[in-house]
């Protein structure tokens, strides 16, 4: 009998240890956030002891590695926003259109074929889209518009748009599928066409989640790296011409990391300063997306 009791005691001890270990695992995610914020701030604060905030946020010259050094981040931010805007013109309408088609129009059999195609598109690594942009989209653009540069914002935007389209489509479709069928049936009973049901019933009911999907897609485009590093170029000049070579924040970060940079140098700190700006831009977008969903959550 005593042996048995001892065994049970051991069992409970194991339970206790496992729970504590699992708690440690769960703490990793909190720790990750803390470390990200800490390392970004640590280097960025040092960076701003050498470069003025005013120069960084209002300067239009970005030459952190060339003498005379200049740290105006505006060209990088404009480049990033150009890619975000350009890709949204493709991903938002086409993604939403695909979602409406899948949830309101498509036959079951068609869905079975189309859904996996979108999933494949979503699973293709961004480096592959970058290759596609540089070796396929850019030559086509150059035949249509001969003044197009080898590296240009338009080609990268199109590729980022194709890459984020499936995400918009699947999130919007989920939102529309969540609209109860009874509401649709009511509209059909009144003699509505599918078009009227989609535009006047389903989309308004799913609007908040669709809006959140849009914001998240833009956030994704802002953080997208390999496509722009390959296809958009490495020229941090302030331009609004999408046929020109530009540089985004992520493109700069990749470019500077290709060389062996030493800790403590201004290049190293610049990397983290740009990373901090990127982090906050995407964080704000994600918080907006969450706020949209929370505020407008329809309860059926």
């Amino acid at each position: 009998m005593r042996g048995k009791k001892y065994e049970i005691q051991k069992l409970h001890q194991a339970e206790f240890i496992v729970e504590k270990v699992l708690m440690l695992f769960a703490a990793v995610s909190v720790l990750t956030t803390a470390i990200i914020v800490f390392i970004l701030f640590e280097e960025t604060i040092v960076f701003f002891s050498e470069v003025s905030l005013w120069e960084f946020f209002t300067g239009t010259q970005w030459t952190p590695t060339l003498q005379p050094r200049s740290f105006g981040i505006i060209p990088l931010v404009v480049g990033t926003l150009m890619i975000a805007l350009g890709s949204s013109i493709i991903s938002l309408p086409l993604g939403l259109g695909s979602a409406i088609y899948l949830s309101e129009y498509a036959h079951k059999k068609v869905r079975k074929v189309v859904k996996p195609i979108l999933e494949i598109l979503a699973g293709i690594p961004s480096i592959v889209y970058g290759f596609f942009a540089l070796t396929f989209i850019t030559p086509i653009l150059q035949t249509i518009l001969p003044q197009t540069q080898v590296f240009n914002a338009l080609s990268a935007s199109i590729a980022v748009g194709i890459m984020t389209l499936p995400m918009v489509a699947s999130m919007s479709e989920d939102a529309m599928m969540a609209v109860p069928d009874s509401i649709r049936q009511g509209a059909y009973a009144l003699g509505s066409t599918r078009f009227e049901v989609a535009v006047k019933v389903t989309i308004p009911a799913a609007m908040s989640s669709i809006g959140a999907a849009f914001v998240l897609a833009i956030s994704r485009a802002i953080g997208e790296t390999m496509i722009v590093a390959i296809a958009a170029g490495q020229s941090p000049v302030l331009t609004l011409n999408p046929l020109n070579s530009i540089q985004t924040m992520t493109g700069f970060m990749v470019n500077i990391s290709m060389g062996d940079i030493q800790q403590g140098t201004i290049e190293f700190k610049t990397l983290f300063a740009v990373g901090t700006v990127l982090f906050f831009m995407t964080l704000i977008m994600n918080l907006i997306a969450r706020a949209i969903i929370k505020k407008n959550r329809e309860v059926y």
């Binding site: 995610s29 909190v30 990750t32 956030t33 470390i35 990200i36 390392i39 970004l40 998240l216 956030s219 802002i222 953080g223 997208e224 790296t225 992520t250 970060m253 990749v254 990391s257 990397l271 983290f272 990373g275 990127l278 982090f279 995407t282 964080l283 977008m285 994600n286 969450r290």
Partner: peptide, 16 residues
């Protein structure tokens, strides 16, 4: 935390 981390761009993890 987890849902915020899911939205952090991959390149920022590279900095980490």
């Amino acid at each position: 935390n987890i849902s915020n981390l899911a939205g952090v761009p991959a390149i920022v993890y590279g900095l980490l």
